[in-house]
Nucleic acid binder design. Structure first.
Lengths: 228, 228
DNA sequence: GTATATACAATCATGCATGTATGTAAAATC
DNA sequence: GATTTTACATACATGCATGATTGTATATAC
């Protein structure tokens, strides 16, 4: 067969990555054979082995390509400098993450593979640490954001920023898994923003005892009037 | 080989289940071969195929044996009738779940298999629904508990019981995954109870404006003095 | 324009996991 | 105590996934 030009070769590489995403999602990582990936990409196993040493490297390449841009975005949002209320940064970064999943089929399938269709042993054990890293980063960022909110007085009294950060991380992680584990629920697009806002609202300062307190606290309820 | 008595047969069945737990945990479900399980149990594949039709049935049997008792316990705790504050039922059921994981190596390994070492496709896709069922049950129970707390006045004003239940479920799920994904952290035994109590404390009613408010809110901080 | 490296396809060798079928000795059943 | 069933061990047949090897036509480097 004829040798391809460099641009063409890169294109088949991309097609292999795309085919791997679909195949891993459909059949799980360990059950998909490189033959299946190759066929779906319109090439033979020879091409796959040319671009990637084995299934593990193919998996890592696929994951990296999709997840790296996401992490950058989330990190930049949470600690935006010119916010009236640092709590908005937390809210926005979480919302952005979930929007990325809800909007992009590719992103969603990638996360489903990572959380539901991959066994973390041997070669893949290292992925777990990779998955923890964004979590730890979020922990640091969120704690700082909560601390800034505390300084600005927008945080409810008597709360510990570090504990709040861990709590919020657990919340995000859990919501993440619920979303991925039950995709048939189609109401997520409206529910999730409401839940995220309610989560943050629960931590916002209330006006001490005035009538405004009731209105502020009601933010913990799902709201429909406010545009996103 | 000599035929075993009924009691002996049941014992080898248990040994196979136990060996399967270890093997699945060590190598992931799809990578473990029934030969490995058999060898670890001190029998041959013939014995495994005698007791279980195939790997899938072995997996389901193992999971069922360990998880069923846990679910019953959690369900009975959350809606205990004679509670001064229904929020305590939520707190206790969550604490009991995590204690079960922290105390029992078997339970912990089983959950690690389910969440980190199993690919949910084909035969195993059904497990996902099984995993969602306890979640949905918790959702219903927690909402009722929150509603009871609301009626009793122990719930903070302006909160929506249904939204709170979903939020708490997400929190539990997330904490669950954090615990399973980073077992090297050995401080979980102290951190988790604090986080669970802080989570519930954030939703407890405060005395409106008196000095007691500060003390109540401080429950959101990790506490060390109170015995569990 | 020649030489070389590239981008695959095609073939081969190997091993391993599964499922099934058969053998068997002792326990249950009567 | 004879028969049947049980609880496995052993052996067999099959298929499939992997990785390595080889072949080859063409870009690309010089």
């Amino acid at each position: 067969m004829a040798r391809k030009t460099k641009a063409e070769a890169e294109l088949t590489r991309q097609r292999i990555l795309e085919a791997a995403l679909r195949a891993f999602h459909a059949r799980g990582v360990s059950r998909t054979t490189l033959e299946e990936v190759a066929k779906a990409a319109g090439v033979t196993r020879g091409a796959v082995y040319w671009h990637f040493a084995n299934k593990t490297e193919l998996f890592f390449a696929m994951r990296e390509q999709i997840s790296l841009p996401l992490l950058d975005k989330g990190h930049s949002l949470i600690l935006a400098e010119n916010l009236a209320d640092p709590l908005d940064g937390i809210e926005q970064s979480i919302l952005a993450l979930f929007q990325a999943i809800l909007e992009s089929e590719r992103v969603r399938q990638m996360f489903e593979i990572i959380f539901l269709r991959c066994e973390y042993v041997d070669d893949f054990a290292g992925v777990l640490e990779e998955l923890n890293k964004p979590g730890l980063q979020f922990l640091v960022d969120a704690e700082l954001a909560y601390r800034r909110a505390q300084a600005k007085g927008t945080l409810r009294d008597g709360l510990d920023p570090r504990a709040l950060a861990m709590d919020t991380l657990a919340f995000v992680r859990g919501l993440f898994h619920q979303l991925l584990a039950s995709p048939e629920e189609r109401d997520w697009a409206r529910r999730i923003p409401a839940m995220v806002r309610a989560h943050v609202a629960l931590r916002r300062a209330q006006s001490p005892c005035g009538p405004a307190a009731a209105e502020s606290a009601s933010a913990a309820m799902p709201r429909r009037t406010r545009r996103q």
